[in-house]
Nucleic acid binder design. Structure first.
Length: 602
RNA sequence: GGGGGUGUAGCUCAGUUUGGUUAGAGCGCUGGCCUGUCAAGCCGGAGGUCGCGAGUUCGAGUCUCGUCACUCCCGCCA
């Protein structure tokens, strides 16, 4: 008989009844009846009930064994009597009557329960004892789920002819983007490698090398702060790039992948390809966001004309000063109690708005605002907003149009939640397309603060500086930069950005011109993007691609609400690994080897 | 860098609004009972620097100030 096991803990079934079997696993639960003792033995695959009777020489040892100890049990597989069958587990029709037992390794007292899934430990404790936390069925399933997702990605990309090509982890610091992680060089005193924020430049170089279709499940490193859906420090992207393609070709490749992957693993219904296209402008106008949650049916409308020169003085005066009024119509809430509307107003004030006006349509227009409006205006409002009986409309008004749109987007989400209009069991996917290539300081800053006059005049890249402008390269210089869109797209799902991509600018001269608009000099661009411009000067294929946030998508598909749940060894909020103690101090000699002296205050 | 929340037994939490006797519960641990449970049950026991430090007070888990940790959000993430 095998030293450790003849079966795993989910294998025994009525087929094995009468056989001798050996199992090794962790003691998960104990039910001690004095004369008979049940131990649930658990491994990666499942759980099996092991029975000890008081006559057994191992009975008292089994009674005292600590939870989470590893034991080997040998005995006969017995069919359970009908009334003792446990239908909740696959091995529930049988049990192992133990004849021999070996304590392999005894566990110390465990800091939190593992067998009892209802007992949730705090996040910091779970991370401190991650090796125990990972024993839990939920985490075993999540990590298994992640594996299946990675397999699925490789399968669907491979089937489409994409080559998986690995790119360097030790690379050069890039001037664009987020903060780099730096690695000091021993062989080159005073110089540094950087960890890649993404394999962006390498994948474009691969295209110029003729590889045609590339993908990689790439580790990316960015020294930025965490969020619930964003791991600090390191994360994985499905990075892909293809040559001789237009936007539609990249979309098709990604849609084929997503459709295949989600078909295998999603537990909710999801949009089938082709995914709908929403232009960036439409997204901002209708949803107040460039990552709209389409599960929420509410849309933002321009309601300025409803209040122009009206009896509702606050709005009328704001409009006089160039302001805007945005309205959101919510169906079937007219009968809600007054508190529903008051609480929305309170919420708006807590979130930085002067207030939130509303009108109720219950046979006629009602509410504090409606009373100030001339009767002959009522029809116009009903028509403009397409109000139906039972609707209520909420209004955001400001002279700052950018703030108004942004805030209306937040109101839209809040109303969707409070009126319970969001279909939580759906996965709604869209492409946001036609991003502006540039933004003025006006829009760049206005949503959260007043820009200085200097900033107002400045032009910024709005998204990805390497994107191809939607214009004839010859005409670029003669066009208003702020009127230009880029071949740039985001994949958006349930209000989350799942990925982003673009048709790249592969013309070296045009690339230089694009960078000159926000103020780079030609010399600076040629210096900063030397390798890319050099490669493009030797025959660059038109190319484009996309990168999807793998962790975030797996989190969503696994119905988890924190990215740590689907990462085996995640960092905490402060980017620390509390299990291994990273980052930590290193011996002085290691610093000397790489010519580093710390200036950190003790 | 900024804002919110949390911090009480090994774990999860109640108690803090309105300061007042010996700080409680469930799970776990531990001693005993129990031959069919699967969140086993019953009886008993141990277990506390109320995150830490100051302050107010006759008296602080509770109020004030500071500080630390964790967490969520804003900034940031081309």
């Amino acid at each position: 008989m095998h030293k450790h096991r003849t079966h795993n803990c989910s294998e025994l079934s009525p087929k094995e009844v009468g056989q001798q079997a050996r199992l090794t696993g962790w003691v998960s639960r104990r039910r001690d009846h004095g004369g008979v003792l049940f131990l649930d033995l658990r491994d990666h695959y499942g759980s099996t009930q092991c029975v000890f009777r008081s006559q057994s020489p191992h009975f008292s040892r089994a009674e005292s064994i600590r939870m989470e100890s590893v034991i080997t049990v040998t005995g006969s597989v017995v069919k359970r009597s009908p009334e003792t069958i446990n239908a909740n587990i696959p091995t529930g029709e049988v049990e192992l009557v133990v004849e021999d037992m070996l304590v392999v390794t005894e566990s110390a007292y465990i800091p939190f329960s593992i067998g009892d899934e209802s007992d949730e430990a705090s996040d910091s404790l779970r991370l401190q004892y991650r090796f125990l936390d990972l024993r839990r069925t939920k985490m075993q399933n999540n990590i298994k789920f992640r594996h299946k997702s990675l397999q699925s990605i490789r399968n669907h990309m491979g089937k489409q002819g994409f080559l998986e090509i690995q790119t360097p982890i030790l690379t050069a610091s890039s001037p664009e983007g987020s903060r780099d992680f730096l690695i000091p060089s021993r062989l080159h005193p005073g110089k540094f490698y950087a960890l890649p924020q993404a394999p962006q430049i390498y994948k474009q170089l691969l295209m110029t090398s003729g590889f045609d279709k590339y993908f990689q499940i790439a580790a990316c490193f960015r020294d930025e702060d965490a969020r619930a859906d964003r791991a600090p420090g390191e994360f994985y992207q499905l990075d892909m790039e293809m040559s001789f393609v237009e936007q539609a070709d990249v979309h098709h490749a990604i849609e084929t992948l997503v459709d295949g992957w989600f078909s295998e693993l999603a537990t909710s219904t999801f949009d089938k390809p082709p995914f709908q296209h929403i232009t960036h402008k439409e997204a901002m106008d209708k949803y107040g966001s460039d990552k709209p949650d389409l599960r929420n049916p509410l849309i933002i409308q321009n309601a300025t004309s409803c209040f122009e020169k009206s009896g509702f003085k606050i709005f009328a005066q704001t409009i006089e000063k160039g302001g805007i009024v945005l309205g959101i119509v919510v169906p079937n809430v007219a009968s809600k109690p007054r508190s529903f509307f008051d609480k929305m107003n309170d919420w708006a004030r807590e979130n930085g708005a002067p207030g939130l006006g509303y009108i109720i349509y219950d046979n006629e227009l009602k509410g504090p605002i409606a009373n100030t409006l001339e009767k002959e205006r009522h029809d116009h409002i009903i028509k403009t907003l397409s109000l139906k009986d039972g609707d209520a409309a909420f209004f955001i008004c400001s002279t700052n149009h950018f703030w108004a749109k942004d805030f209306a987007g937040k109101v839209r989400l809040e109303l969707g939640e409070r009126a319970d209009l969001v279909d939580k069991n759906a996965i709604r996917i869209c492409w946001i397309v036609d991003f502006p290539l540039y933004e003025s300081g006006e829009t760049w800053f206005s949503a959260w603060r007043e820009p200085t006059p200097e900033e107002r005049k400045t032009i910024y890249f709005s998204h990805n500086p390497f994107s191809m402008p939607q214009c004839d390269p010859e005409e670029f210089s003669s066009l208003d930069p702020l009127s230009l869109n880029a071949w740039q797209y985001d994949l958006v799902c349930n209000g989350m950005e799942l990925g982003s991509g673009a048709i790249r600018n592969h013309h070296p001269e045009l690339l230089v011109k694009c960078f000159q608009v926000p103020g780079y000099t030609e010399a600076q661009v040629r210096q900063d993007f030397k390798s890319l411009l050099s490669a493009f000067s030797y025959g660059a294929p038109p190319h484009g691609g996309c990168a999807l946030g793998v962790d975030r998508i797996i989190m969503m598909l696994a119905n988890m609400h924190n990215i740590r749940e689907i990462i085996a060894f995640p960092k905490n909020q402060n980017a620390m690994d509390v299990l291994l103690g990273a980052p930590n101090n290193v011996p002085e000699q290691l610093l000397k080897d790489v010519f580093i002296k710390s200036t950190a205050k003790k």
